[in-house]
Design a protein around this nucleic acid. Sequence first.
DNA 1: TCGGCGCCATATGTATACATATCGCAAGCG
DNA 2: CGCTTGCGATATGTATACATATGGCGCCGA
Lengths: 211, 211
Amino acid sequence: MTARRSADQIHAALSAQIVSGQLRPGDPLGESALAGLFSLSRTPVREALQRLAAEGLVERGPRRAFVVRRMTPEALRDLFEALGEVEALCAGLAAQRMTAIARAELAQIIDSDSGDHAGYATLNARFHDALRLGAGNRVLAAMLEDLNRRSMPWRNAQFQASARRMQSSRQEHRAILQAIAAQDGDRAASLMRDHMATSLAVVLQMIRARG
Amino acid sequence: MTARRSADQIHAALSAQIVSGQLRPGDPLGESALAGLFSLSRTPVREALQRLAAEGLVERGPRRAFVVRRMTPEALRDLFEALGEVEALCAGLAAQRMTAIARAELAQIIDSDSGDHAGYATLNARFHDALRLGAGNRVLAAMLEDLNRRSMPWRNAQFQASARRMQSSRQEHRAILQAIAAQDGDRAASLMRDHMATSLAVVLQMIRARG
DNA sequence: TCGGCGCCATATGTATACATATCGCAAGCG
DNA sequence: CGCTTGCGATATGTATACATATGGCGCCGA
């Protein structure tokens, strides 16, 4: 079901490279250069870049050129806070709305945590999917997906810098899931806020260390 | 400060027409037709439509043609709920973060409510601005602005259908502002949820009446 | 030597021509 | 008579040429 439109392919490729850190903040994204790279014309490249800009992954630089988005500490604070609050919101809604079946699936996700590094990405994805679907609101789900995508580069970098953080993050996720399964929305929301605050602190410290 | 880029002008014009109801849900937005209307080529028209699609104001129809977005009752429910929750969130943050000066401005907004129909739009805008700025988070502010824009057509229609609703809506806003000024975040959030629930009910009833 | 001014290189913005996919309609077959 | 299938019109998707603005860089003058 991979889209066959060229613009979609470029968008997906650039998005993946930005989120994975292959393209770093500030890197230039010239239309002609990308067109040459993908062996396409500038038109679909423009569409892809405009979509990435709308999603907040790239921004306009000098000469209105596109560059991979740079984030100030203040912007990162706002982004992580927003992500935490919306996730807390969804966690609370999920706690009160999830069906018995959905809760069973949640428990299964918790149990499937084998503890190895390789499985963390998929486990993390299932964690967020459970939240989005559990809340039962497509608009909130879309917002959460968007915030997740925008914060992904920084959260990934967080784990690349220190493997120990991955362990603590996993434990925090586990506690949140258990609170949701126990239908304790307030506790889930509170844990989520703490989780995001901790993540932000790690990211900011990492940025300071790098300069 | 009107943008001189053609794509921006088209985007602004179409956005205004959609939000004001001049263009109704389902109306076709052919690229060539719009290009002729604005005496421009299809390229800037495409950019404008893509941005509108990213903002959720237009969607893809048959032949991948753009049409003004149609909303099912379920989608409207999700949209209004999301708007209510995010506004409640911002109201809560504003209640605990706003400075004394900002609270004074808030009180001034409440007092400036002369009660006439003409002033409602600007009063409403100041209400939402106070919320966005008071929360002190640019990401949440952008999300709120986006949700407001997307729901604007329906909220406007709500008032066109019954002038009485405008009075009650104004009173609800007033109560919310007072709760924020009193730094009672929980009460402000709760009132906001009720406010959006009432608005949604009015809109849904209106849609049913129209068919 | 330093600062300002102007040219030029190169990027994006726009226009237009061409390629291609899709939907509607109609005709033919079962 | 209804369903299927193929054709054709028309829309979007893509490529490319041209217009235009901007930032860098060098020259010239004080």
